[in-house]
């Protein structure tokens, strides 16, 4: 009885074992489970990318973008940096995509914009060029040093090292990036700033702009 079960189990596992041997022959030193995970993540990224460029609807394109971001987060996990992976999800999916949605909603007619038509052959060529350029620059580098994919995690040492790096050796670039963000924020505040009308001011004529979702509307009436 036990032997029968063992045989059945061996039969079930045999394709996986064969795959494992094949992979071990091709890419020595890589974990098989990590490679499978890598394949899944790449599929997710590609599917998301095609959804983002292929759909005629801006919101569906945004969902494609979300899928791509999730796949990239998975790749960070495989490179043993869960901190970066979680930050990718937190910032890009949780904040950037949500703000993109907000921007889409403030513009009307999501189905009838420029992007609802299929691109011509010229823009498709430009797109292909834009795709091949990073590949040509980064491809040889990646082929030269294949990173070791892993499902292991080095725990909090990674997060700690990252934090120490940001405040010691990379502090200059870190601060530079914060200044860029600060400039963007100050610019946004400057653009959106409007003085509240005092009672002495003449009433402002109504402009024909789209109704905004700003919360100040009530105070200005």
């Amino acid at each position: 009885m036990d032997q029968a079960i063992e045989k059945i189990l061996a039969l079930i596992w045999s394709p996986f074992n064969a795959l494992e041997e094949l992979i071990a022959e091709w890419l020595p030193g890589q974990e098989v489970a990590a490679l499978i995970a890598y394949g899944v993540y790449v599929l997710i990224i590609l599917a998301g990318g095609f959804m983002a460029i292929g759909s005629r609807n801006l919101i569906r394109a945004m969902i494609g973008l979300v899928l791509t971001f999730l796949g990239v987060a998975g790749l960070y996990l495989l490179l043993a940096s869960p901190f970066l992976a979680f930050m990718q999800v937190l910032i890009y999916v949780g904040a950037v995509c949500v703000l993109i949605f907000f921007a889409i909603m403030l513009t009307r007619n999501t189905n009838e914009g420029e992007e609802s038509k299929l691109p011509g052959i010229g823009s498709a060529l430009y797109g292909l060029l834009a795709f091949l350029l990073p590949l040509a620059v980064l491809g040889p580098l990646i082929v030269k040093n294949v990173p070791k994919l892993t499902l292991q995690s080095y725990g909090q040492t990674e997060t700690r090292l990252l934090g120490e790096g940001l405040i010691t050796q990379d502090v200059f670039s870190f601060e530079l990036i914060s200044i860029i963000l600060l400039v963007a924020m100050a610019g946004a505040v400057f653009l959106a700033w409007r003085r509240r009308p005092t009672p002495e001011d003449p009433p402002q004529p109504k402009t024909g702009s789209a109704p905004s979702l700003s919360t100040k509307g009530g105070a200005q009436k």
């Binding site: 919101i59 969902i63 979300v66 869960p82 901190f83 979680f86 930050m87 999800v89 937190l90 999916v93 949780g94 904040a95 995509c97 949500v98 949605f101 909603m105 995690s153 725990g155 909090q156 997060t159």
Partner: peptide, 26 residues
């Protein structure tokens, strides 16, 4: 047992918002 457990929670909690806005929009 995740070492960055609270980060995992905060990160994937953001997906809930996306589902809300998708529901409202769709």
């Amino acid at each position: 047992k995740v070492d960055d457990g609270i980060l995992l929670i905060l990160a994937f909690a953001g997906l809930g918002v996306i589902s809300n806005i998708l529901a409202g929009w769709a």
